[in-house]
Design a protein around this nucleic acid. Structure first.
Length: 285
DNA sequence: AAGCACACCTGCTAGC
DNA sequence: TGCTAGCAGGTGTGCT
């Protein structure tokens, strides 16, 4: 459930907590949370004693850059993906009660803890190396341009849609085409752009790509400003445990059967690629 | 080679 | 009331 806006809100919350702090201890309570590591002990060993120099984000992945080590400042990173239900929570001290499903804990040199909580266990974190301290770590090389920081103009979208039969909503969710969008925000972006989710990508016109780019540029910052979206089942909360409020601004997502806020027609729901799309048959063509 | 199905996992909800 | 079945979500793999 966390998509780009939620990950960015968490990053902005975590950055001042982590930056300049040294990880004095790390603990893995559930091996699956570090399943890309050779062993949980390897992850703990890599992290312990390291200082965080910066945080960044690529799509839905959070990147925590570490100082020191053989590779030099900023080259060793920890990549975090929240999956569907992952949360990074800051505890003021070790005395604070741990939530159920707390799988990884980092203890900082100021006594605070950063805790990775993830009921559905789709999230994970692992150590990687970035050849360029400012660039992307190697495991994230397959991702397309970041939908917030590197969106470019409509030409970029047009070229990624060209000749493809796959539904435009699924193409927008393809992280190798564009990184950061998921089921929630593609629903809202397609609504704003007036494009039906099941349209073949290749049928989307240049003008519609212009509208899609404008919609992405409007929706993502607004969602970040609202501190993300929190829905009933996948309880997204920020680094301080508070839900977001962007769901109050949803036009179509999770609103199937209710009236479209623009034209009043009933919002429809469509099964697509094992997911569900919500859209307005009146406003989206 | 694009596009699809499926596995992964848990908690909530709808339906009986 | 208590149970079960179904669903929800993002990513990665593997098949067609």
């Amino acid at each position: 459930m966390p998509e780009l806006p939620e990950v960015e809100v968490v990053r902005r919350d975590l950055d001042p907590v982590l930056r300049g702090r040294t990880v004095v201890a790390a603990e893995v309570g559930r091996d699956r949370a570090v399943r890309r590591e050779p062993a949980p002990e390897a992850f703990v060993a890599t992290l312990t004693g390291r200082t965080v120099v910066a945080t960044s984000r690529v799509g839905k992945f959070l990147v925590v850059r570490l100082d020191g080590g053989l590779e030099g400042a900023g080259r060793d990173v920890v990549i975090v993906h929240l999956g569907m239900s992952g949360q990074l929570r800051v505890a003021e001290s070790a005395d604070e009660a741990r939530l159920p499903h707390t799988h990884v804990v980092w203890t900082l040199d100021d006594g605070r803890e950063v805790r990775f909580v993830d009921p559905r266990t789709f999230g994970q974190m692992w150590h990687a190396v970035s050849t360029d301290p400012g660039g992307r770590p190697e495991p994230l090389g397959h991702l397309g341009p970041d939908a917030l920081d590197d969106l470019g103009d409509a030409t970029m979208l047009t070229s990624r849609f060209a000749g493809r039969r796959i539904a435009v909503k699924l193409r927008l969710m393809d992280q190798t085409a564009l990184a950061g969008l998921g089921n929630i925000y593609t629903d809202e972006i397609l609504f704003r752009a007036g494009v039906a989710p099941h349209r073949p990508s290749g049928s989307v016109t240049e003008d519609e790509c212009v509208a899609l780019v404008a919609a992405i540029r409007a929706v993502l910052p607004a969602a970040i400003a609202a501190r993300g979206s929190s829905l009933a089942d996948a309880q997204y909360v920020d680094g301080r445990g508070r839900p977001g409020t962007y769901q109050e601004q949803f036009a179509v997502h999770a609103r199937a059967g209710r009236p479209c806020p623009r034209c009043g027609r009933t919002v429809a729901r469509l099964a697509m690629g094992g997911r569900s799309a919500s859209f307005c048959p009146g406003c989206q063509r």
